[in-house]
Each structure stands twice: as C-alpha cells, then as structure tokens.
C-alpha cells in the first residue's frame, strides 16, 4: 500500500512539475463548451436543452486529450520497462497511474462543470446529478483510456489512433451520463442511469487494469 501511494505520488508530482499540461485539459474543456453558444446562437432555451450533452461531449474529448501522455512518456524514457520489472504487480501500477491521471484531469473537469452549466443556462435541478454522474463517469473514461494508451505504445501517430480506439468505447458513458442529467431536469427518477454508470465504473475497474497491463507487456516484447 505504501508503494501504491508512492506510485500515485510520483505521477502527481510529475504532473505538478509539468504544471501547464493538466491545466491545458481544463482550459480545453472550458473553451470547447464556450464555443457552443457562438455556434448555435445565444437562444437560452436551446442552450438549456442541449447543455448536458455539450458538457459531457466536451468532458469526453478533454479527458482523451491527455491520455496519450499517460504511458507514452514512461515508455519513451525507459521508465515503463523498469516499472514492469519492479516487484509491484503491473496491474496495480496501472491502477496507480489511472488514479493519478483522474486526479489531475478528471477532478478539475468536475469542478469546472457546474460553472459551465450556469453559463449554458442549464436547469438548476440538473447540477447535483451532473456532478454525481461526472464523479462516476470520468474515472471510467480514465480506465477505458488507459487500455487505449497501452495499445498505442510504440506506434507512430498514436494520438489519432487513440481517439479511434477509445471514443467508441466512451459512448455508453455518454448516453447514461446525459440521460441521468436530462431525467433529473425533466423531474423523472434518475437512479437507474446512475446505477448503470456505477456498474460501468466497477466493470472497467475490474477489467481495464488487467487489459492495460497485457497491452504494456506486449509493447515491451
């Protein structure tokens, strides 16, 4: 456990020293959302209706932006090789990296999301559910993304390939994330959607570290 915390701490420290990189993700998220009022026009009713969708799609794209870095930097300088050779099980190492990734990219998105919801004139009933859904959804995105990041190791033009691999897998999270918020705004029960998001999170938590570790071992052969 102490070593697990050490691994998370290292990635957090690396992110903090790179400072600008994780900030970039939030800035991208904000700018992408702010573009929509310019695109669809400042009609408050239209914006309010599509707000949840905009925020979720932007969050999806923003969290993908930083995925390429998740394993590639360690792969390039040989650290990944040594991590694989360390006595800590590789699946645990992957989990530590995903947690660090979520803390530096997912969490800031959750903080920024309610502010953007105000900007888009989203109905106030949806705010709490939006935050709750993001809390379940963004770790899922990081977990799924880690598999993609493992698979593109060593390939040229990995970034484009990564989006092709990962974005289709994000669709369930998008559907139920937006569904939960819309249900709350419409005054319906949103428990089912939240439960499904929770289920997706637990499922990916069990599967993705394992799949990512397999992809890493393959890349190092």
């Amino acid at each position: 456990m102490e070593r697990f915390i050490r691994l998370v701490g290292r990635d957090l420290r690396l992110a903090q020293r790179h400072g600008f990189d994780s900030l970039l993700v939030v800035v991208f998220f904000v700018i992408a959302v702010v573009l929509f009022p310019f695109g669809v026009g400042p009609e408050p009713n239209i914006l309010a209706r599509i707000a949840a969708g905009i925020i979720w799609v932007a969050a999806l794209l923003a969290s993908m932006l930083s995925l390429e870095r998740l394993l590639q930097a360690d792969f390039d300088d040989g650290s990944l090789e040594l991590l694989v050779l360390s006595p800590v099980t590789l699946e645990i190492i992957v989990l530590a990296k995903v947690i660090a990734h979520w803390l530096t990219t997912g969490l800031p998105l959750i903080v920024a999301a309610p502010l953007l919801a105000v900007l888009l004139n989203m109905n106030a009933e949806g705010f709490g559910v939006l935050v709750l859904a993001l809390f379940l959804g963004t770790p899922t995105l990081s977990l799924i993304g880690a598999v993609g990041a493992g698979l593109i190791l060593g390939s040229r033009r990995g970034g484009v390939l990564l989006s092709l691999l990962v974005l289709p897998l994000y669709i369930p999270v998008l559907i139920f994330g937006v569904g939960a918020v819309d249900a709350a705004i419409g005054g319906f029960a949103f428990k089912a959607q939240i439960m499904i998001l929770g289920g997706l999170f637990l499922g990916t938590l069990a599967l993705c570290p394992w799949a990512t570790a397999a992809a890493i071992r393959q890349a190092l052969e």
């Binding site: 690396l14 300088d77 650290s79 040594l82």
Partner: peptide
C-alpha cells in the same frame, strides 16, 4: 536491470 535507456525523469 540496466538497459539502453536511463529512465531519468527530466522534471525530478
């Protein structure tokens, strides 16, 4: 194991 790459993080 010491391989061809030194695994020294530039920011640490």
């Amino acid at each position: 194991y010491v391989g061809h790459m030194d695994a020294v993080k530039p920011v640490l």
